[in-house]
Each structure stands twice: as structure tokens, then as C-alpha cells.
Simulated assay, not measured.
Amino acid sequence: MLSGILRWSRLAALIWWAGTFWAFMLYGLAFVAYPTLWVPISCTIAGMVFVILIHETGHAAAAIACGWRVLVFAVCPFGLHLPTRTITFLPRGYREDAGGFVASVPRSQARGTRARRFIIVASGPAACFVLAAAALVVRELWLRGIDTRLLVASNFGLAIAVQACVSGLISLLPYDGSDGEKLLVLARPDPERLLHAPCGWMATQLHYNVRLRDLPEWLIAAQRAVPHPGAEPDRHGEGIDIRRILDADRPDFARARERIDAYRTRYGGSAWLDSCDAYLAAIGEGDAASAAARLWKGEPDPGAQSMEHAAKASVLAVQGHEAGMQAELRAMRKAVRARSPYRNATFRDIERRIRAALRPA
């Protein structure tokens, strides 16, 4: 399996280099009046970006047409984060593809079919081939003229067609993470994968910082209906409930207290739960002494560091320690950025509530 992936990835690299060199030469011929190396280099790079943009637009347009919600539209190194309508620089570790990617989820369970997913994945390469065909048609129209300038311009159209074909072809090769590999997986019926699809949709939305309060009810219900043999009955679902209550525009702190206490009784404490507990006691109940006692005392949990710092900042705020609060808030923001480059509106509101709770020293 691994050797096959390596073989396809090497073929993809070979096609890319050959196509890029061909396009570079064509751009040079198209701009023979400007005998400088930088013109074809700039055109080759610009053509690559344009083709990637068209490729990802194909995915996004198909997702919208299929009734899916687009979360991120990325043409590396920048990504448009639709939930917060912000453009984000994506560090190398967060770039899911060398060129770009689109992250989307269905707006209802009925729209999350394998067929719709197949259409969304296939539409990226299809958009590239449509672009290549359009470029070739324009090139032929240029070639009908006898003006030398039109003959030169035809090389520009051919270069775009070459780059578009290369992008479409490479994306269809079945190497690791490519559209081709995804299409092969989708072509094989997999009842188990379909059964657990809601868990993947939930994980995708949380990964891209969709606010917990914005998660659709149908998805929460569908995720809870997925069987998890050997796992505690509804621990994850109950944790989501607590997060959603605290993430509300106007949190119901009394209800959150009931849920946290019930969760602790059923599953015990943790860095995440104790931090939510301390934050609730400080911000929701204004009890500095109780909040300080509820802080997590164990080893730091990498997955809950943002909430741990938020809880400590909230305790310091109600105690009137502004300098300490500021330090914890800085650490919270750093932890949030370390987990994801996309804006986190939940922790933005948490910070606002903590600052509003600051008491005079």
C-alpha cells in the first residue's frame, strides 16, 4: 500500500515539474517583447495560483450546490474562515494540501450522502479541466487571426491550459490525501463509515472553530445516536452540552452548575471540567474563594490549557489581581493560537467576560 502511494506521488511530482516547465516556456514565448527571466517566472507563479483558486472554487461551488456549509476556503498560505469571516495566515503545519483546500459539512443529515460527497470532491478536478478547455477555445480563437500579436497571445492561453490540465490530472492520482484517493474511498460502499459520519462532521466543525452554540441540533442528535461500544454512554455528548451552555450569548449559569455537578458525579473531575467549574464559580457566581478552590490541581492537560488559563484569569479577576489576570489571558490566547490558526470567537467572548468581572484591588 505504502509503495503504491509513493509510486503515485512520484508520478504526480514528475507531471508537475514537466507541466510547470512547459508552461514556463510558453509564458516566455508569449512575452518575447520582454526578454527578461522574471516575466515568465511571475506568470508561471500567477498561473499556478489562479488554477488553484479555480480548483478550490469548484469544490466550494459544488458543496454549496449540494447543500453543504463551507467552513474554510484556502489558497495557501491564506485561508478564508467563513464562521468568523476572517482571512487567516496558515502556518505550514495547518496546510492540508500543498495548494489549497476547502472544508465543508452538510447542513442536514439527509444531505450528507456519499453521492453528494463524491460530487464535491470530483468538482475540483472538473473545474480545472473546464478551465483548460476554455483556455484552449480562446487560444483557437486567437489563432484564427493573422496578427502576430494574436499568435503570441495564443501561447499564453496554451500555458494556462497546460497548468489547469496538470492540476486536474495530479489531483486525480490516488496518492496520500489527493482527490483521487478520496474518490476511490467514496466509490466503495462502507456502511461503517456512513454510520460514523456524524462524528466526523462534528469533529470537522470543532477543528475549524465553529462555535459550540452554533452546532446544529440535528448533528448533536445524530452524533449521540452513533454507537460507541466500550465507551461511557454519553460522556462526550454531556461535555458538549456544558460547553454549549457556557458558550451561549447569555449563559444560563444555574443550568451549567447542574450539568457540571452531574458530570462530576458520573465521570469524576478533569482539567477541563475543573477549569469550567472554576470559571463558572468566578464569572457566573462571583465567588472568588469557591472558584479558587475549584481550580484544577493536577498536571496540565495540553487539550485543556486554554480553559485552564481562562479559569485562572477569571479567579484573579474577581480577586482584583489585574496583573495576574493579564498574564493568564496572554497565556490563554497563546494556547488558543497553538491549537488552531483560525479565530476562536468563544475564547474572545470568554476574555471579554473576564475583563468585565475585574474588581478593584
Rank of each mutant, 00 (worst) to 15 (best):
G4N: 08
I5K: 04
L6G: 14
S9T: 14
I15E: 00
A18V: 13
F21W: 15
W22F: 12
A23H: 03
A23V: 02
M25E: 12
M25L: 15
M25H: 12
G28I: 07
A30Q: 09
Y34T: 15
T36Q: 09
S42R: 05
I45V: 14
F50D: 06
H55K: 07
A62M: 13
C66H: 03
R69K: 15
V70H: 01
G79P: 10
L80Q: 03
L82H: 00
R85E: 02
T86I: 10
I87Q: 03
F89S: 11
R95S: 09
E96D: 09
E96P: 05
V105L: 01
S108T: 10
R116C: 07
R116D: 05
F118C: 09
I119E: 05
V121W: 04
S123M: 14
P125R: 00
A132F: 10
L136F: 12
R139D: 12
L141E: 08
L143N: 12
G145F: 12
I146G: 11
S154P: 15
F156C: 10
L158M: 12
I160A: 06
V162A: 04
Q163I: 08
C165H: 02
V166N: 05
L183F: 09
L183E: 05
V185K: 15
V185Q: 15
L186F: 04
R188P: 11
E192T: 14
H196A: 13
P198K: 00
G200F: 03
M202S: 06
A203F: 01
Y208M: 06
Y208Q: 06
N209R: 14
D214L: 00
P216E: 00
E217R: 07
A221N: 09
P227D: 01
G230A: 05
G230P: 13
D234W: 00
G239P: 10
G239L: 10
D241E: 15
D241F: 08
R244P: 05
D247E: 06
D247W: 02
P251A: 01
D252F: 02
R255C: 13
R255P: 02
A256M: 05
I260Q: 04
R266L: 13
A271G: 13
D277T: 14
A278T: 11
A281C: 13
I283S: 04
G286N: 03
G286R: 02
A288H: 06
A289K: 11
A292V: 03
A292F: 06
A292K: 13
K297I: 08
P300M: 00
M307T: 14
E308P: 13
K312M: 12
A313Q: 04
A317E: 02
A317R: 04
Q319N: 10
G324S: 02
G324W: 07
A331F: 03
M332P: 15
M332H: 11
R333S: 13
K334Q: 15
V336A: 01
R337L: 10
P341I: 04
R343S: 12
A345E: 14
I350S: 00
E351F: 03
R353W: 09
R355W: 09
A357Y: 01
